[in-house]
Design a protein around this nucleic acid. Structure first.
Length: 882
RNA sequence: GCGAAAGUGGCGGAAUUGGUAGACGCGCAAGAUUCAGGAUCUUGUGGUGUAACAGCCGUGGGGGUUCGAGUCCCCCCUUUCGCACCA
């Protein structure tokens, strides 16, 4: 008995055994080879005919609403897009197999600029272009074997959808949440429309990359700022969202706590209000700085000695784009006027500064150069006084010699600051706000970086904003019964500046709903992000003619349990949807404030690009092979210049079209490879060779069926059978948890291991048919979400029916997962040092030898179980038992 | 500059969270099959070393904690991502 036991590292010798030596089988059990081209269309057809994914939402059942962000139908789908939907489909099929009534709808974010650009370039109407793309994409989804409940399909460009977009707009208008206002706005010269702040990234258009200009225009806005506090607070509840997205939203909303303080300005006859997060430093406020756009500026500069020069400068700054302004560095001008610091009583100069933003706070700041880096730099540049009113812990600062502002708001202690002197900063802030309020100089306040959502677009292919301009009555909303305001189809697309809708006279000219007189329609259309901000609710009742959605169903099925989409919407779509969800809540239409309970962001798929080899190249290490006496050996690593990995795009010539891939290997192979390639949240580099591995895997699984069919033995008591049973149940347990954690790549690798184990079992010969079949069927069931066609087909050939519909996810039996263990209690010099367990199949002596053949260690066998690794003093220590 | 995450074979990536580092797959090598190529199958594959074992070195670099560190702590370096005049 003793000799059977050995240290674990010596065990797995069975790997030497050949795996699939006698495949394939010939004779009566022979099966044709794996032909995805035949079986995939067969199953796709059957799923469509049997409407397996259609769900009657009114029926009772365990609800689970999963949703992939609905795509823009751009027409060109590549394997990178596929990842998103394949991932969702795998999840969906898994949910179904776990017995959940899972709802998985799909629709089209079908308004947008590319359609209109295609119209200008190629003369095809945006509608035709869009609908054609929808058709193509839909059939692509089919070829991937992706199941959606198409009975709930929606397209945002369909009047039956955008009608409710307009309806919602009118409700928001009634509530004061939609308004028309004049403001400096972002203008994209290339897209020839205004943009929301969220669509400007580093001063450039998020869509096309053009530098955005500032224009003063009258536009439609949604008052998202009214929800700033709730949107910020709500982020705390979103525990199942990626931390990254929450952080990005939090930064974007930019909540700051501080105080509004009024500084008297004798010249103006009224005060200038500033917002500060550091009211405790007010004794160090040695000047004020105003944004050049501040409304009081004209009067403040009236008496300046060099007034014309200042006015020229102001004009210059105002005409700069945000990007240019920032690149210019800090610049300012003295207005010639003074304010009074209400706490020190001093006269302090009022400056203008290009770094002060009119859109944030009050457009005016109190400058505390001792304790704010920006103010410090400005003060140094223009020779303005610096005063220290906060000391660092245990020290003091010299304003003459300091090289940067001291802005720590935790450790510092106020000094030379009247009533708050000597207080630590947090207390000083509290106390000074009380003092400000007591003296009537202002109040504590909270400010947000978030600005209102500009939803007007001067483009054709979008939801018309349902408003009418009447000479007599002014702005008049379109009455609800006149909805939808339909987009006219006979509109010329010239590509010239200005909205094509403006030239559609039949659309523009209308009657005032209020007085009946001649009136003009609004020609702006809505930002397409408006369409996508509530579509997730429309899916439960997509055909409803009488209301935006069925609130009862929405409240039953929503929030969305699992939302899947790209990180690029971390702020845009996801912030707007959260906002509109709250607005719908406040309109009494839904009973929750967060639309998406769980969020998952899949990573991009990249591939080597070939467009511009000189530009996008990088050094990568490659093996350097040399020959010694004619024998090649690896000498070392050298480097080679190769094109960089990049996002797939036509312009980079690195698009992998799914059609070719499916023709050659089948959709199941693409699915398996796509999910196997890397953790799904990570960026993944596509490799054409790598696909072969997935193909081989599926082929092996396919071929196993016949090898199992020829088995005869029914016994399964040998160690090999027990090993396979263990492996099966461990795999079930592992794959189940990995599904829960979205670890699809390791789930597939675990399935590959199981298939290898079955292969080993078969190759060893004389195995039990029952054992092999149990393992194989478990493998097929777990493989179904990844390779639905092949597994359905095999399942049917095994004499079963309906993998997806009738089969359940396998259950792991923990009692079959572990080997029989004996516990060895280890004593050293009579003292208990712990216990370790080793497989019962092993023997005792060698463990002792392994654990240290030493008479100080005395094993004591005590039955079964307990896996534990222990330390035994001495040289030989670690014994890990699997 | 600030913040976050991450650095593991030739490559994509594993490691049940402190316990056999490199699972699984690609690539590569040898063999089988094939007229040939491709495809397929078998075996091997971190480095070094050996006839083969053994041994030694190995998770960006340097320290530390621990019987034991890819994993924990400290200091660097690098990369990626977010934020960046938001008062």
């Amino acid at each position: 008995m003793m000799d059977a036991l050995r240290p674990t590292r010596l065990w797995p010798l069975h790997h030497q055994i050949g795996r699939l030596a006698h495949f394939p089988v010939t004779g009566p059990h022979a099966m044709e080879s794996y032909e995805p081209k035949t079986i995939e269309p067969k199953w796709q057809k059957r799923w469509a005919e049997e409407r397996v994914a259609e769900l009657d939402l009114s029926l009772p059942g365990r609800e689970y609403y999963m949703l992939n962000m609905f795509p823009y139908p751009s027409g060109d789908l590549h394997v990178g897009h596929g990842r998103n939907y394949i991932l969702g489909d795998a999840l969906y099929r898994w949910l179904r197999m776990r017995g959940l009534a899972a709802f998985n709808p799909m629709g089209w974010d079908a308004f947008g600029l590319p359609a209109e650009n295609a119209a200008i370039k190629r003369g095809v109407h945006p509608r035709e272009w869009t609908l054609g793309n929808i058709d193509r994409m839909k059939s692509q989804f089919g070829r991937w074997g992706i199941l959606y409940d198409w009975s709930k399909e929606i397209a945002s460009c369909d009047p039956s959808y955008y009608r409710w977009n307009q309806w919602l707009f009118l409700r928001l208008y009634e509530k004061g949440l939609a308004y028309r206002g004049r403001a400096p706005v972002n203008w994209c010269p290339s897209c020839r429309t205004v943009l929301a702040n969220e669509q400007v990234v580093e001063g450039r258009c998020e869509r096309c990359g053009a530098v955005v200009e500032q224009r003063d225009l009258e536009q439609w806005f949604l008052r998202i700022t009214a929800y700033a506090d709730r949107l910020d607070a709500g982020l705390d509840q979103l525990r199942e969202w990626p931390e990254k997205v929450r952080t990005m939203q939090r930064n974007w909303i930019g909540r700051s706590v501080g105080a509004d303080v009024r500084f008297p300005v004798p010249l103006l006859g009224h005060d200038l209000t500033v917002f500060t997060t550091r009211p405790d430093t007010i004794y160090g406020a040695t000047f004020l700085v105003l944004a050049p756009e501040h409304p009081d500026v004209p009067r403040l500069v009236a008496n300046a000695p060099d007034r014309p020069a200042i006015e020229t400068w102001i004009e210059e700054v105002r005409n700069q784009s945000a990007l240019e302004r920032q690149e210019a560095g800090k610049e300012g001008r003295f207005t010639g006027s003074y304010a009074v610091n209400p706490f020190t009583g001093e006269q302090i100069p009022i400056w203008l500064g290009n770094f002060v933003l009119m859109q944030y706070g009050t457009g005016a700041i109190m400058a505390v150069p001792g304790h704010d880096q920006r103010d410090f730099e400005f003060a140094r540049q223009y020779g303005l006084p610096i005063r220290v009113v906060v000391n660092p812990p245990g020290g003091t600062l010299d304003p003459e010699t300091m090289t940067e502002a001291y802005s720590d708001n935790q450790g510092g202690v106020s000094t030379d600051s009247g009533p708050i002197s000597g207080l630590p900063v947090p207390e000083a802030i509290e106390k000074i706000i009380e003092e400000i309020e007591r003296r009537g100089l202002g109040a504590g306040s909270v400010r947000y970086r978030l600005r209102d959502w500009l939803i007007s677009r001067q483009r054709y292919w979008g939801t018309p904003i349902p408003m009418i301009y009447c000479e007599a009555c002014g702005l008049v909303p379109v009455p609800e019964e006149d909805l939808p305001v339909e987009l006219p189809l006979d509109v010329p697309f010239t590509g010239r500046e200005g909205n094509p809708l403006e030239h559609a006279e039949s659309f523009v000219r209308t009657r005032c709903p209020s007085c009946g007189g001649e009136a003009r329609r609004e020609t702006d259309t809505m930002d397409t992000f408006m369409d996508s901000s509530w579509y997730w609710a429309r899916f439960v009742s997509p055909g409803d003619q009488s209301r935006i959605f069925d609130s009862a169903l929405v409240n039953r099925w929503l929030p969305v349990d699992q939302y899947i989409g790209g990180i690029e919407h971390a702020i845009l779509h996801l912030l707007y949807a959260r906002f509109i969800c709250r607005a719908l809540h406040d309109l009494g239409l839904i009973g929750f404030e967060e639309p998406f309970a769980r969020l998952f962001n899949q990573g991009m798929i990249t591939k080597e690009g070939y467009r511009d080899p000189a530009d996008h190249m990088s050094w990568v290490p490659i093996a350097e092979v040399d020959h010694r006496d004619g024998v090649p050996f690896r000498k070392g690593t050298s480097h080679e210049l190769v094109p960089e990995m990049g996002k797939m795009s036509k312009s980079r010539f690195n698009v992998v079209p799914p059609d070719e891939l499916i023709d050659r290997f089948g959709a199941d192979t693409e699915r398996v490879y796509t999910l196997f390639i890397a953790p799904p949240e990570k960026e993944a580099a596509w490799s054409d060779e790598g696909v072969v591995g997935a193909s081989r895997f599926l082929n092996r699984v396919w071929n196993m069926a016949e090898a199992i069919a020829v088995l005869r033995s029914e016994a399964g008591e040998d160690e090999g059978s027990r090993r396979l049973i263990r492996k099966t149940h461990r795999t079930i347990a592992a794959v189940s948890t990995r599904f829960e954690r979205f670890e699809f790549n390791t789930a597939i690798s675990a399935l590959m291991e199981l298939s290898n184990a079955i292969g080993d079992y078969l190759a060893a010969g004389g195995g039990s048919k029952k054992v092999a079949l149990d393992a194989y069927e478990a493998l097929l069931r777990m493989l179904h979400p990844f390779a639905p066609h092949a597994t359905e087909e095999l399942w049917e050939r095994l004499g079963h029916r309906g993998m997806l519909v009738t089969e359940r996810w396998p259950e792991a039996d923990p009692s079959l997962m572990e080997e029989d263990f004996i516990t060895i209690v280890v004593q050293v010099n009579g003292r208990l040092r712990g216990q370790l367990s080793v497989p019962a199949a092993a023997g005792e002596e060698e463990v002792i030898t392994g654990a240290r053949a030493n008479d100080r260690v005395r094993p004591h066998i005590e039955g079964k179980r307990i896996v534990k690794t222990i330390y035994v003093p001495g040289r030989l220590v670690n014994l890990v038992v699997r």
